[in-house]
Write a protein that binds this DNA or RNA. Structure first.
Lengths: 211, 211
DNA sequence: CCATAAGCTGACTATATAGTCAGTTTTGAC
DNA sequence: GTCAAAACTGACTATATAGTCAGCTTATGG
């Protein structure tokens, strides 16, 4: 028992080492991907920033594309966690929509790199679906999360397409607004802009749903 | 006079030849840029599709980056033309906003390649501003066009930042919604989705402006 | 302590590709 | 028709970089 436990612990130390290396690679890749287009990033840039050998990257990932997919998947997980992160379930649909938009905003501030990568990844999902397997899936999962959160307030007989439209509108509004705001405003202006727009957007979404 | 006119005409034929070549290069580049990320496109892919020699591309453009900037500039020109394209100026702000959103939608359908390139270019404006000179400028021009069209309905004393927010919201909504819709809906679903959402979005924008 | 396994490394090779430029073709002037 | 100018060409070179793998370092088991 003791020997077995020791064996497990010791094996775990080797596994921990590998996991640490993998995390360093992912962190380095994410940092660089949020600063330049993913296609112009070289494997060497990633391994140099992670301070590991080039062969190490290929030990953990098939290639650069796999890192991208893995990081997009992680980022969607984190965003979905934010969307789900409410201690008490909001009573009204308006409150839930406001919470969802707030979650996005906080995510864009706290996890700026992932936010930008999600934006890049979604473009790649359109342009490179043939070479980036499964890049769509995290985004569909994300849209479904918004749908699931919203559905609980609606009649079970509501048209699923209408909910899909709403999810695309929410996601599109957040990512779309930020992408233009980044060009035409500074950070303070973006922050003070999002709240008034969010409020009227939430109201119009509720109206769209016929409430 | 006749000799001069003939000289001008003959010179014009050489210029026309060069212009045709330049147009072929731009068309080929646009087609490819709407199918794959611009950074993964090679000069050779462009010149092969244009059916011209590699040296010819360098005779017309400094490099691939210049083609991108030129095409983004052109696309913004075309979109701005669409926004301005009303025989009679809409009477109410709501009508103008609906017209602007409609112009975007028609642009996305009729000039799908330019629409996608604008989307890519805006991401590059964030990530590659250091290597892509002047990539911001067309997007600022585009935001200003929306602002100018809308300003005519508003009090001259209105906060310019409020109009900037509105422009970012309009631009962001259109590009953002489409980018997600492309993943989560088919073309028919997108088309039937845009109109109800447009209506509520217009209403929310008017509310945002305090009308 | 030793043998084996696992994680890691970076020099190296093969391939990709940007950009050049000597040469060809087309156009313009006389 | 000839010569010069302009537009164009694609083989070539220099550089970039993905991916490999023989070898090193660290970890594990007996």
């Amino acid at each position: 028992m003791v020997a077995g436990a020791t064996k497990q612990n010791k094996k775990s130390r080797t596994q921990k080492r590998a996991k640490r290396t993998r995390r360093r690679l992912k962190k380095a890749a994410l940092d660089i991907f949020s600063e330049k287009p993913v296609d112009s990033v070289t494997v060497e840039e990633i391994t140099e920033k992670a301070d590991v050998g080039k062969g190490t990257l290929y030990r953990h990932f098939a290639d650069k594309d796999e890192i991208i997919v893995v990081l997009v998947d992680d980022a969607v997980d984190h965003l979905v966690e934010r969307i789900r992160d409410y201690s008490a379930r909001p009573d009204a649909l308006e409150d839930m929509l406001r919470h969802i938009l707030d979650a996005h905003y906080r995510f864009s501030v706290d996890s700026k790199e992932e936010f930008i990568l999600l934006f890049q990844g979604k473009l790649l999902a359109r342009l490179q679906a043939d070479t980036l397997e499964d890049i769509d899936e995290p985004y569909l999962r994300y849209l479904e999360e918004i749908e699931n959160q919203v559905s609980t307030y609606l009649s079970p007989s509501i048209d699923p397409m209408k909910i899909r439209r709403l999810a695309c509108a929410v996601a599109g509004f957040v990512f779309g607004f930020f992408s233009f705001a980044m060009i035409g405003m500074n950070a303070d202006e973006i922050e003070t802009s999002i709240k008034p727009l969010r409020w009227v957007f939430v109201r119009s979404l509720c109206e769209f749903l016929g409430r």
